[in-house]
């Protein structure tokens, strides 16, 4: 199965004029874009530029003031997720959607074993056979390079990098089609980051995932994202092919951002 097989003329996600304000302050303003199956889009900008607000609004974590987030559902084709009922949206976020938080603790149950963390998502979509669930959990621990012998340990006994990989396993076990990621490599050592990036890239390719990755790390988007959106003060100031935006930035802010990166 390659990315081509899933490629079609219908965007997986269509975001239209999405806007969110906090009182008089602007979170994000009139953001529109299409994301096609198999595409990975990066959103970069400094803290407070609105990138996390946008991500959370798309993922349904908080309601935007206006706009549409149309997702190509398996059953009924394109539907505006903001108009879905709460149970429908929750079902979506357990099956076709996944959300990887910056801090693994927010995405994991710290008092439940590693295996239980992965198994919970399977049970949420109807998995009942204990043996099958445990076998899948073990398989996924292997895929994110956590030893199977840790399956009964709680994530609180894991290192930061392991917690992050466990969070990814928990999210991907149900075979989602769209993954939202908020600074997935933030706060990790560079060596751990490289491993995680490699892992994510492999999974994106194998599973034909689409992903939206918010980060302030330009090196991360260069490696992971096909396309890039640059945000400043709630507006998208530039978007395009990742390497084109980074190598030939057009907007003043993007030029500043790119030229501010320290060379190693």
């Amino acid at each position: 199965m390659t990315r081509d097989d899933r490629k079609s003329a219908v965007p997986l996600l269509q975001v239209r004029n999405l806007a969110k304000q906090y009182g008089r302050r602007i979170g994000c303003r009139d953001v529109s874009f299409d994301l096609y199956p198999g595409e990975v889009m990066g959103i970069v900008g400094e803290s407070g530029s609105g990138k996390s607000t946008l991500l959370n609004a798309m993922a349904g974590h908080h309601a935007p003031d206006r706009g549409e987030v149309v997702f190509d559902t398996r059953a009924d084709g394109p539907r505006d997720t903001l108009k879905m009922s709460e149970p429908e949206r929750r079902m979506l976020s357990r099956t076709d959607w996944a959300f990887v938080h910056q801090h693994a603790r927010e995405g994991l149950r710290m008092s439940v074993s590693a295996g239980g963390n992965i198994g919970e998502r399977l049970m949420a979509v109807g998995g009942r056979h204990y043996g099958d669930i445990r076998a899948q959990a073990a398989d996924w621990l292997g895929r994110v390079e956590i030893s199977e012998s840790r399956i009964d340990d709680r994530p609180s006994a894991f290192s930061g990098g392991m917690q992050q990989r466990l969070q990814i396993a928990r999210n991907l076990v149900t075979g989602p089609r769209l993954v939202f990621m908020d600074e997935p490599t933030g706060g990790l050592d560079v060596s751990v980051q490289a491993r995680l990036l490699d892992l994510l890239r492999g999974l994106v390719r194998e599973m034909g995932l689409s992903a939206i990755i918010v980060t302030h790390d330009l090196a991360v988007v260069r490696l992971l994202a096909d396309r890039l959106m640059v945000m400043k003060d709630g507006d998208v100031v530039e978007s395009g092919l990742t390497d084109q935006v980074l190598d030939d930035p057009q907007h003043a802010y993007t030029q500043l951002l790119v030229s501010s990166v320290l060379q190693v």
Binding site: T2, D4, A194, L197, D198, L223
Partner: peptide, 21 residues
């Protein structure tokens, strides 16, 4: 050459082929 750290040379070279299936 710009590559993801940790990916073996053999896979780096094979990647364009894998990308077309």
């Amino acid at each position: 050459l710009r590559v993801v750290p940790r990916v073996p040379a053999l896979d780096v070279v094979a990647e364009p082929l894998l990308a077309v299936g």
